[in-house]
C-alpha cells in the first residue's frame, strides 16, 4: 500500500534540560491516505520494535478541534495547507522523496517538554486572569432569550470563539506574540452583552498576564492570521487594542 519514501528531520530533545538536535529518520512505505500523525505513528511503531525511544508529540482528537496537536512542519505551523491542523494534514500533500522538517513550537513562553511536545500552560493562565464572564452556576438566571443579541455581533463573537488554543499563532509570529489568542478571547466577550460589564478589566488583566508570560509584542505582521487553522482575524487584535486603550485611559 505504501508508495512514498521520505526523509524526516525531526527535533529530538530528551526533557526540558536537554539541548536537543535534529535527527534524520528515513521512512519508506508511506501511504498517501495516511494523516501526518499516522505517518509518525508508523515510524514510532517501528522505533519501539527496534528498541529505540519513540518520538513524543501531542495529539488527541485528531479531528482538528481539540487544539492539542502542534508541529512546525517544513517551516510552517500545522504544515503547508491553510486552515487545517496537523492532524488533518494528509500525506498526499507531499511528494515521494521529500525532505520534511518537523520541529516543536518555538517560544520562550512554550518551553519544550520532550521532543515535539511543548508546555502551553501560559494560555491557561491568561484565561484564568480574565477569560470568562463572572457568572456563578445558578438555577434561576434570566431566560436566555431575555436579551437579544444582534446577529452580526453574535456571528463575529462566534468567529472569535472558534479559536482552539493550539498556539500556531505564537509559533508563526517572529516575535512569539500571543496577541491573536488573547484578542480572540477578549473579542468574543466584548461583542456579547453578557461580557460587556467586565470588558475593560478583562482586557487589562489578560494583557498583563500575557506580558508576564514573556510572549513577544505584536507588530502587526499578520503571520498569525495566515497560519491560524481556524481563520481568526486580525480584526480581533485591533479590537483588543481599542478595548485596552479605552480601559487604560479611563482607569481610575
Amino acid at each position: 500500500m505504501g508508495n512514498m519514501k521520505l526523509n524526516l528531520k525531526i527535533w529530538r530533545q530528551n526533557g526540558s534540560n536537554d539541548k536537543g538536535s535534529i535527527k534524520d529518520y528515513p521512512v519508506n512505505d508511506v501511504s498517501e491516505d495516511m494523516s501526518f500523525l499516522e505517518m509518525l505513528d508508523v515510524l514510532n511503531d517501528d522505533l519501539v520494535r527496534k528498541g529505540e525511544d519513540p518520538i513524543a508529540f501531542d495529539h488527541d482528537c485528531r479531528e482538528g478541534i481539540c487544539g492539542m496537536c502542534s508541529l512546525f512542519i517544513n517551516g510552517r505551523p500545522h504544515g503547508p495547507e491553510r486552515h487545517i491542523t496537523t492532524c488533518q494534514l494528509h500525506m498526499r500533500k507531499f511528494k515521494d522523496g521529500d525532505t520534511i522538517y518537523v520541529e516543536p513550537w518555538r517560544a520562550e513562553a512554550f518551553p519544550v517538554v520532550k521532543d515535539l511536545v511543548v508546555d502551553r500552560g501560559a494560555f491557561d493562565r491568561i484565561q484564568a486572569a480574565g477569560g470568562f464572564v463572572s457568572v456563578n452556576t445558578m438555577g434561576n438566571l434570566v431566560d436566555a432569550n431575555a436579551m437579544p443579541v444582534r446577529k452580526a455581533d453574535a456571528d463575529k463573537a462566534f468567529d472569535a470563539a472558534a479559536c482552539i488554543g493550539c498556539g500556531a499563532c505564537v509559533a508563526a509570529c517572529p516575535n512569539g506574540s500571543a496577541m491573536l489568542f488573547v484578542s480572540a478571547k477578549v473579542s468574543q466577550y466584548a461583542l456579547l452583552p453578557q461580557g460587556r460589564p467586565e470588558a475593560r478589566e478583562r482586557a487589562l488583566n489578560m494583557v498583563q498576564q500575557m506580558d508576564a508570560e514573556k510572549f513577544g509584542n505584536c507588530s502587526n505582521i499578520g503571520a498569525c492570521e495566515i497560519e491560524c487553522p481556524k481563520d481568526i482575524s486580525l480584526e480581533n487584535i485591533a479590537r483588543l487594542n481599542r478595548e485596552y486603550l479605552g480601559a487604560t485611559l479611563s482607569r481610575e
Partner: peptide, 15 residues
Amino acid sequence: QCVAQGVPFARDYGG
C-alpha cells in the same frame, strides 16, 4: 447558564 457565560449560540435575525 451557557448564554450568561457568553457561549455564542446561533441566533436568528431578530437576535
